[in-house]
Amino acid sequence: MKTILCILTALVSLATAALAGPQTFDFKDPKGVNNAVFKLDATLESINGSANGISGTIIFDPENPAATKGRIVVATASLHVPNPMMKQHLHSALWLDVAKYPEIVFETLELKNVKTTGDTTTADVAGKFTVKGVTQTITAPAKLTYLKDKLGQRVPNQKGDLIVIRATFTIKRTDYGINPSAPQDKVADEINLTLSIAGAAPRP
């Protein structure tokens, strides 16, 4: 009896170890909460908007968060600002050229300064950021929160884990050819970006 118990314990440990390996998290959120908020100063009032057309995948290993790799995509057409004329300008060829460049992409290269406390990992994520066909290497501080077995609480009848990623960083619109001729005393060069996204890794 003791031997059987030992074998069972070993098997359970093995299964747990296998489950705790790298997992692929899909960021096409069925609840549509994922968003990227952008803000840049301008005359009269700052230009505030958001995008919710988020997709992509991240491979995350709870045992080794430093090995996180992946690609997050924002559909450029999903960028919205409350002023219709401003939105038209934003989508136009002079600004983001939505028709020609339908995606804004962030692809991870490596994680630096990785610190994990419980289920939360903070790191400086270096990656390739592509906007309007221009790719620049940037580093963004990010917070990754691993929510084990929480998928069922969001999507009924599904088992699995969630990961929440939050990152705030700044880019210069002139670096990406986003209306570079616009006077910077009227529209700021710096764009503040805040990413709040959740990905799911379902289990059968």
Partner: peptide, 19 residues
Amino acid sequence: WTKTSVPVKTLDEVTGIEA
């Protein structure tokens, strides 16, 4: 400037993300 839409934020309780 004039706006034709206003943002409405809702909290996703599981992830803590403001949609």
